[in-house]
Simulated scan of single mutants.
Amino acid sequence: MTTTRTESTRPAVWSVAARALRMELRIYESIGRAIARRPAIEPGGSGFSYHRPVLTILIIFIALSALEIPILDLIVHRWPVVRIVVLIIGIWGLTWMIGLLCAYFMRPHVVGPAGVRIRDGLEIDLAFDWDDIASVERIRRVDPPKTPRLTEHEGLRELSLRIQDETSIEIRLERPTAVGLPGRPPKGGIHEVEVIRLWTDDPAGFLDAVRTHMP
């Protein structure tokens, strides 16, 4: 019994570790892109941000992370080993928050000749060819807090990538399409969806780019 339980939990542990590693690498990738001023936008495409509603919150967290480093260092300065550990953790946390902010700027939604690329933070990156897309509309919707990403509305399976419970663009797909979401089922894994709802800071510009590139 114990052996079976250990074997069954091993894949879950590896899955969590692999996900954490991917996020960590993406943090440093985003910082590198920010330094080089090279956002992840395909040639001929236009990038559309989705950070405006959360920008102030991220900046506050970064400021607090930076402020707590000298404060904690002052508290534990008489214990060298503890001081070094706390300093490393503090710098790592600050770097992580800066990388997350960079990810919002460097990993925008993209509308281009090949189709639409939808992103959300560090993990979600979904690409759809124009042949996959039936329609794109500007529809602003506010969902109740803690509404799951995956829902069913009017008989259609929806994926909602909200920013502070809001979406501003609705993309209807030609057919049920498999998308990969971070985490384990039921929230993560592979799911078939027919509608994608997302937030962009510039929905009018997003639709203009769609009209330019959509066949």
Results as ranks from 00 to 15, higher is better:
39 P>C: 04
39 P>A: 03
41 I>N: 04
41 I>R: 03
43 P>W: 06
45 G>Y: 06
45 G>V: 08
45 G>F: 08
46 S>P: 00
47 G>H: 07
48 F>Y: 04
48 F>L: 06
49 S>Q: 12
49 S>M: 02
50 Y>Q: 03
51 H>T: 06
52 R>P: 00
52 R>N: 07
52 R>H: 12
53 P>T: 08
53 P>N: 09
54 V>S: 08
54 V>T: 14
55 L>W: 09
56 T>N: 06
56 T>M: 12
56 T>F: 10
57 I>R: 10
58 L>W: 00
59 I>Y: 00
61 F>H: 04
61 F>Q: 07
61 F>I: 06
62 I>L: 14
62 I>P: 01
62 I>S: 07
62 I>K: 01
64 L>R: 05
64 L>N: 10
64 L>A: 15
64 L>T: 12
65 S>L: 07
66 A>N: 01
66 A>C: 12
66 A>V: 10
67 L>G: 13
69 I>L: 15
69 I>R: 06
69 I>T: 11
69 I>K: 07
70 P>H: 04
70 P>M: 02
70 P>G: 07
70 P>I: 06
71 I>W: 09
72 L>M: 14
72 L>C: 12
73 D>Q: 13
73 D>N: 14
75 I>L: 14
76 V>R: 02
76 V>L: 01
76 V>A: 03
78 R>K: 09
78 R>I: 02
79 W>Q: 14
